[in-house]
């Protein structure tokens, strides 16, 4: 039994260890501050700044959109709808299910819609796909948070004559640390997704300037450049993997800190 536990946790350190081991030698200021020179697949010079920036744009924009759409939905499901009603139960179930739908399916449908509308692969396409992918994460996390709010806090606020919307604002204040957790979780999923962006965002050597142009992202920088026969290009993949790992680790640590804050808050 101990062995099973050790092998499971061990695999985590193995993954991070190998990425560190391969990536660290390639990390330099040039690597993270320049775009690739001479084509991402064959050019030996330059770095991965285009992918870092593209990923931040993509994940940032879709997280903002998903939060703006997801929080009102979670509030509606917990405040406006009668609890225990069919619409409430089935909507929550459906968001649970949507959470499990793989990004390749979202990507495929977004891709065919884009083809149908004549839009080419672009940052915009990626943002739409990833937003759809992250809405269920936001809804589910906020929903779980709202369930932890004591019923009496809702009741006393309403007893002051507050409308449902005003009560919702008080509850949002109450679960604030948790909301940041939800946003971070969504951001983490958004920045790490490959299959969705592969079909919809394309790839580019340039820094992302316009939303209707293809943009590079870290996961795709890894995916495309890893299979290159040129060591320098492979190096860019390793460096991208390291940067992505660091971003994810920072996010996980932040969510951990926030989660303990939310616990303290609960009197």
């Amino acid at each position: 039994m101990q062995i099973s536990g050790i092998s499971i946790t061990g695999s985590l350190f193995l993954i991070i260890g190998i990425i560190m081991y391969k990536g660290l030698p390639y990390i330099s200021w040039e690597m993270i501050s320049q775009s690739p020179k001479g084509g991402f697949y064959i050019g030996k010079g330059g770095g991965i700044f285009n992918a870092i920036l593209g990923s931040l744009y993509l994940a940032g924009l879709s997280t903002v959109l998903a939060t703006l759409i997801g929080i009102p939905i979670a509030l509606y499901l917990n405040m406006y709808i009668k609890q225990g009603s069919f619409l409430e139960k089935s909507s929550k179930l459906l968001f649970d299910v949507l959470f499990g739908i793989p990004s390749i399916v979202y990507g495929a449908i977004a891709f065919s819609i884009m083809v149908w509308l004549g839009i080419r692969a672009s940052l915009l396409g990626g943002v739409i796909t990833i937003t759809l992918l992250t809405i269920p994460i936001v809804v589910r996390t906020i929903d779980e948070l709202l369930l932890t709010v004591p019923v009496d806090l809702k009741n006393v606020t309403k007893s002051l004559g507050a409308t449902t919307w005003e009560t919702a604002k008080v509850l949002i204040k109450y679960i604030k640390p948790g909301i940041f957790t939800a946003i971070l979780l969504a951001f983490g999923r958004a920045i790490g997704d490959v299959a969705g962006v592969l079909l919809t965002t394309g790839f580019s050597d340039n820094l992302p300037k316009y939303i209707d142009e293809p943009a590079a992202t870290l996961p795709l920088a890894i995916f495309f450049q890893l299979s290159s026969p040129i060591p320098e290009v492979q190096g860019r993949a390793y460096a991208s993997a390291l940067v992505l790992t660091l971003i994810i680790l920072i996010i996980v640590i932040c969510t951990h800190i926030l989660a303990s804050k939310q616990k303290k808050h609960k009197i």
């Binding site: 004591p150 009496d152 806090l153 009741n155 006393v156 606020t157 309403k158 007893s159 002051l160 004559g161 507050a162 008080v170 204040k173 109450y174 604030k176 808050h265």
Partner: peptide
Amino acid sequence: RKKMGLLSQRPFPLPM
């Protein structure tokens, strides 16, 4: 509801 103040089982100060 404005006409009726509620004093709950445990005190619930608003988060402010």
